[in-house]
Simulated assay, not measured.
Amino acid sequence: MPRLPGGRRPGASPLSHASSVSPLSPSALGEAVPDVAPRLRELRRRRGLTLENAAQRAGLSPAHLSRLETGRRQPSLPMLLALARTYGTTVAELLGETPPEREPVIRAGSREPTGADGWTYHQAGGPGRAMQALRLEIPYGAQGDLVRVHPGEEWLYVLRGGLRLTLGESVHELAPGDSAHYDSLTPHRLAATGREGAEALFVHTLLQSPDVHPHI
C-alpha cells in the first residue's frame, strides 16, 4: 500500500517498524541473546515453517538458522529483525520482553486520520500487532497506477463506491459489500472506479498464507 509519513507503507510496515524502533541497547541485546535460541525454534514451529522455508524467508542458510536455534551461534540485531519479520513478531518478543498491556478498544475519533498521496487512512487497530487494520478513503484518480509487491496478506471490504483491484494479470471490479483476500507478493493495484471515490476496510498481515511458495 502507499507510504505513510516516515516512509513506511500502511500495509507493509507496522511490524518491521515496531521491531526496528524497539528500545534495545547493545548491552541489553547481548544479555538477552543466550535465551533466544529456544524461542526462535518455538516461533518457527508455531508458524508451521520448516527450517529451510524459514531460513529462505529470513535470507539465511538453513545451517545458519539451525545454529541460531541450538544456541551455537548468537544472532546479530539485523538477523533478529529479519526473523521477527518472518515470524510476524517483534525483536522484543524474540528476546522475551513482556509487551505492555494494550487497550483492546479503539474509540471513534480517538485518532487523527493520516493522508498520503491522496488517500486518507483511519487507524482501526492497535499498534504493534501482527496485523494492521485501517479504514481507507480512496479518491478517484489517486494512486491507481501504483503497483505494490510486499510480503504478507491483504483483506479488504468495500463500504462505499466501487474499487478496481488488479492482481497480477487479473482485474476485479468490487462493489459495496464485496471483499477480497490475497497474498500481497502478487503485484497488485487498487483504484476507485467512480468520481465519487470509494471507502473500504483494509487489513494487512506480514505473514503469508501457508499454501504459497516460500519467498526470499
Score class of each variant (00 low, 15 high):
Pro2Gly: 06
Pro2Ser: 14
Leu4Asn: 04
Arg8Phe: 08
Gly11Val: 01
Gly11Tyr: 00
Ala12Asp: 14
Ser13Ile: 00
Ser13Leu: 01
Pro14Ser: 10
Leu15Asn: 06
Ser16Phe: 01
Ala18Thr: 11
Ser19Leu: 03
Ser20Met: 12
Ser22Phe: 14
Ser22Tyr: 15
Pro23Asn: 04
Pro23Lys: 05
Leu24Gly: 09
Ser27Thr: 12
Leu29Cys: 06
Leu29Tyr: 08
Ala32Leu: 15
Ala32Asp: 14
Val33Leu: 15
Pro34Gly: 08
Pro34Lys: 11
Pro38Asn: 08
Leu40Pro: 10
Arg41Ile: 02
Arg41Tyr: 04
Arg44Asp: 07
Arg44Met: 07
Gly48Leu: 04
Gly48Met: 11
Leu49Ala: 07
Thr50Ser: 15
Thr50Met: 11
Glu52Pro: 00
Asn53Trp: 02
Gln56Thr: 14
Gln56Ala: 14
Arg57Met: 15
Ala58Glu: 12
Gly59Gln: 08
Leu60Gly: 09
Ser61Met: 08
Ala63Gly: 15
Ser66Asn: 15
Arg67Met: 13
Glu69Ile: 07
Gly71Leu: 06
Arg72Ile: 03
Pro75Leu: 05
Leu81Asn: 14
Leu83Gln: 06
Leu83Ile: 06
Thr86Asn: 03
Ala92Trp: 07
Leu94Trp: 11
Leu95Gln: 10
Leu95Tyr: 10
Thr98Val: 13
Thr98Glu: 12
Pro100Lys: 11
Pro100Gln: 09
Glu101Leu: 13
Glu101Gln: 14
Arg102Ser: 13
Glu103Trp: 00
Glu103Lys: 12
Arg107Cys: 05
Arg107Lys: 08
Gly109Met: 05
Gly109Gln: 01
Pro113Trp: 08
Pro113Gly: 09
Thr114Ala: 01
Gly115Lys: 03
Ala116Ile: 03
Gly118Val: 02
Trp119Gly: 00
Thr120Asp: 08
Thr120Phe: 11
Tyr121Met: 03
Ala124Leu: 14
Gly126Lys: 00
Leu136Glu: 04
Glu137Pro: 00
Glu137Phe: 01
Tyr140Trp: 10
Gln143Leu: 14
Gly144Pro: 08
Asp145Tyr: 01
Leu146Val: 13
Leu146Phe: 07
Leu146Thr: 13
Arg148Asp: 11
Pro151His: 09
Gly152Asp: 01
Val158His: 08
Val158Phe: 08
Arg160Phe: 05
Gly161Phe: 10
Leu163Tyr: 10
Thr166Val: 15
Leu167Asn: 09
Leu167Pro: 06
Leu167Val: 13
Glu169Leu: 10
Glu173Thr: 09
Ala180Phe: 09
His181Phe: 15
His181Leu: 13
His181Asn: 07
Tyr182Thr: 09
Asp183Phe: 04
Pro187Glu: 01
Pro187Ala: 02
Pro187Lys: 06
Pro187Gln: 08
His188Val: 05
Arg189Thr: 07
Arg189Asn: 11
Leu190Thr: 07
Ala191Asn: 02
Ala192Tyr: 03
Ala192Asp: 07
Glu196Tyr: 00
Glu196Gln: 06
Glu196Asn: 01
Gly197Ile: 04
Leu201Arg: 01
His204Lys: 00
Leu207His: 02
Leu207Pro: 00
Gln208Lys: 05
Ser209Arg: 14
Ile216Pro: 01
Ile216Phe: 09
